[in-house]
Design a protein around this nucleic acid. Structure first.
Length: 397
RNA sequence: GGGCAGAUGGCAGAGCGGUCAAUUGCAUCAGACUGUAAAUCUGACGACUUCGGUCUUCGGGGGUUCAAAUCCCUCUCUGCCCA
């Protein structure tokens, strides 16, 4: 049997890392057995970086491609101009064309570890959205109820708190929905925050082309502080983060997210994950499980080798409290220097005031001994290691 | 077109003539503790300083006053409501 039509494979793709399939999983399953389907994932190039949450639908898209279906990644060069209002308490700031181009460039690089571009096509929806004439837009819009667009949670919240909703924001789902029609897709995948937008596309497809479009939503991942991962809250683990940072950030994630991270962000088998779950319940040190998670994540998004290095560094610095193997080095003409000046010059403090604070609070160590005299002079012998807090290190050359 | 509200430190948001370098929350940083960069607790959080202080900050400009984030004028910007 062709692997694309293997029922158990189809089942797997439609259930693992999937929140729900609308309107019904059965119909899509049947369709996938009958023929090659066209599936797409849309992303708006709003920022420079992608975080781990974005990887879930991206990987899902690749899975469809691997089964031999036609997968398209759409860069929202048209929709980004309207700005997706989903989960937004205020309108997005306008974006410049230059930024859009740069974002697309860096995004391609970032997803290249996840998507196989020989199987996944990339398109830009500006290609068709920006060519629409007023008449086209009116035609499309006549298929969507304005009341429905306004009923969205976020809009209601804004209205009741005295904020406004802009017309272009209301238009957003309509534009995104038209992507489905233009490309004539059978399925759209996206994060569960996208259900509304994706369903508008389904409705348009039904009304304009008289065809069914399925919608598959992926779970959203929570960030390092246990709240929804989002740029503005600064709780993201970025694809671009260095292996060391990624490892550390995963270690700082709340314990009860461990299993969900395993499921959604790694390739670890379900059997192994349920073993981890049992271990956690029976009192195994969550730190150990989390270290394994961090290792897996770095391995998935970077490489096995980098994962091993990151783990070693982590153990060294935080468990054995040793200095990292690599640190910034500084060389000076002077033989001695005031501790405050030294901290500022080695960029471990932004100002002398901050440097003083760090010294007084006992956060500064020189040669592993806490240095408390903020008026003191430090001898700049080569090889001396200065560290501030747990994470900042510098060495005299 | 009419009416009204507002602009304060990274963000949110108090203050409404002196005791304001500016309450508080979040974020951040350090310390203690720990299993982690978790949680919790403690402290810090404009700059400079001979550690006594000094200087620059509350949208821009001007003014009143011994004294202004706070009052007046003006400019710029933003939001809401009605039409």
């Amino acid at each position: 049997m062709e692997k694309g039509k293997d029922l158990s494979k189809i089942d797997e793709v439609l259930s693992q890392r999937v929140e729900e399939v609308l309107p019904k999983k059965e119909g899509l399953k049947k369709l996938m057995q009958e023929r090659k389907i066209r599936v797409y994932l849309g992303v708006d190039p709003t920022g420079k970086n992608l975080h781990l949450g974005h990887t879930i639908p991206l990987r899902k898209l690749q899975e469809f491609a691997d089964l031999g279906h036609e997968a398209i990644l759409v860069m929202g060069t048209g929709t980004v101009l309207a700005g997706d209002p989903s989960q937004r308490e205020s309108a997005r700031p306008k974006i410049l064309e230059k930024e859009i181009k740069e974002n697309i460039k860096t995004w391609k690089k970032q997803v290249s570890n996840i998507l196989d571009f020989s199987k996944v096509k990339i398109r830009q929806n500006g290609e068709w959205l920006l060519k629409l004439k007023l008449k086209d837009i009116i035609d499309i819009a006549s298929n969507v109820s304005a009341v429905r667009l306004f009923q969205r949670d976020m809009f209601q919240k804004r209205i009741s708190s005295g904020n406004t909703v802009w017309l272009h924001e209301v238009l957003y789902p309509v534009l995104q929905g038209y992507d489905s029609v233009f490309m004539d897709v059978d399925l759209e995948v996206g994060g569960s925050d996208q259900v509304f937008n994706m369903l508008v596309g389904r409705e348009l497809q039904q009304k304009i082309r008289k065809k069914e479009k399925y919608v598959l939503t992926c779970p959203m991942i929570l960030g390092t502080d246990g709240k929804t991962m989002s740029k503005t809250s600064g709780n993201c683990i970025w694809i671009n983060d260095s292996p060391k940072d990624k490892f550390g950030k995963v270690m700082s994630v709340p314990d009860d997210l461990i299993i969900s991270y395993f499921k959604n962000l790694t390739n670890v088998s379900l059997g192994r994950i349920s073993q981890h779950k049992k271990d956690l319940q029976t009192g195994r040190n969550p730190k150990e499980v989390k270290k394994e998670l961090a290792f897996e994540i770095v391995k998935t998004y970077n490489s096995q080798r980098e994962a091993e290095e990151a783990r070693r560094e982590f153990e060294k610095i935080f468990e054995e409290k040793q200095a990292p193997s690599e640190m910034a080095e500084f060389s000076f003409q002077e033989k001695k220097m005031n501790i405050l000046d030294l901290l500022v010059k080695t960029k471990m403090a932004f100002s002398k005031g901050e440097a003083k604070r760090l010294v007084v609070q006992g956060g500064v160590r020189i040669r592993e001994n806490t240095w408390t005299d903020w008026k003191g002079e430090v001898e700049l012998t080569p090889g001396v290691v200065i560290n501030v807090g747990k994470r900042k290190f510098a060495k005299i050359k």
